[in-house]
Design a protein around this nucleic acid. Structure first.
Length: 115
RNA sequence: CGGCGCCGGGCAAACGAUCGCGGUGGUAACACCGAGGAAAGUCCGGGCUGCACAGGGCACGAUGCCAGGUAACGCCUGGGGAGCGAGAGCUCACGGAAAGUGCAACAGAAAACAAACCGCCAACGGCUUCGAAAGGAGCGCGGGCAAGGGUGAAACGGUGCGGUAAGAGCGCACCGCGGACGUGGCAACACGGACGGCACGGCAAACCCCAUCGGCAGCAAGGCUAAAUAGGGGGAGUAUGGCGCGGCCCGCGUCUUCCCCGGGUAAGCUGCUUGAGACUGGCGGCGACGCCAGCUCCAGAGGAAUGAUCGUUCGCGACAGAACCCGGCUUAUCGCCUGGCCCGGGUG
């Protein structure tokens, strides 16, 4: 079940987001920024902060979150126990699916290395 | 057969495997279901929920040919009128300008109880002159006229004949306009039209008038559940004052005091999906639509679910993602399928 993506590995509450943002370390990719903070749990957890600022269309925001979830799902068992918030930067609207996914994979790979 | 002709209806890459996500059922294995035609803009109309619901007046807003449809509409259908097109068809805020107020740049004499720049006239009055007189000729000062010229988006009917000093609906014919009344139609309206001599010009997406409709707010509505310092409800009483009841007024309620009853926040649950529902058939209606029967359950998330990988196929895939629910409108959209009609040509 290592590829599963249950609710328990997602950030669900505003407090969890706030805590990560305040205490976390930032990792920047080409399109995305990851805020990372150790959570002391069994697994890494993921959350998304995708605002209308960089992606005004709803279906674009959905796409970004799906790509992020899928990348996280496949990388999760290799990641340390940290909370991660993925936030798109201003370049996102210029990337296509393939390059956005590549950027996410690279980010997760870096998190894995820096352990 | 051709058309860069017209009007509709529909689809929104398809199938399979594996790994995942949301919901429902199940102890579990697992099974079933899981975004759109616009889910969008939030421009209208409802349902639902709470508050206000005594009633009245004034405001305010929306709509605006007629008749239907509908829960309702600013939507739809059918019809009428006007304009456009060779046609199929398309477009139209399409009530009222003799209720009142107002507006009309530039040009032009004048833009609306008409007026007279150029012009036309010399009947009438006046003046000059010829003549014995009757009368003639001239001037255009008073005056008559609105045909012609010119301006303008628009100039107080048009053409012709008569008429006249010159003219003029001044008279007549036809056309236009108004129009008692008649006929058809539920109606909008259409057709005919005595008679009137022309009178009422345009703009109401200018104010306005008339008719019809309209309480306010929105699911963070609203309800339920848990612990602390007293917020809420009911009853009784009060001069002024403050506050509230969509905006204002009348009016009503309330704040302050006493008594009684029992208790609120973006945490969870609920509202939350069965509905003016979808599909099929029959019947009524030109149609929008309605009625009846059968059949079916078709997303309900909550930091927010549809994706990833692989394979096969095609014409290589647009706009775009539900957030209480419906009915419309508007806007975005790669392609493809399909019905009816029009025009031109050919053949029978």
């Amino acid at each position: 079940m290592s590829r599963a993506f249950p609710r328990s590995v997602r950030l669900l509450k505003p407090e969890e987001f706030d805590a990560t943002f305040q205490l976390g370390r930032r990792e920047r990719g080409r399109f995305f920024m990851a805020v990372v903070h150790a959570n002391g749990l069994q697994s890494a957890r993921i959350g998304f902060a995708v605002g209308k600022k960089h992606l005004p269309a709803a279906h674009d925001r959905n796409l970004v979150k799906r790509l992020g979830r899928e990348a996280f799902r496949q990388a999760r068992e290799r990641l340390p126990s940290v909370d991660i918030v993925i936030a798109p930067g201003r370049e996102v609207s210029r990337g296509d699916r393939r390059s956005l996914r590549a950027d996410l994979d690279a980010l997760f790979a870096r998190l894995q290395m820096t352990l």
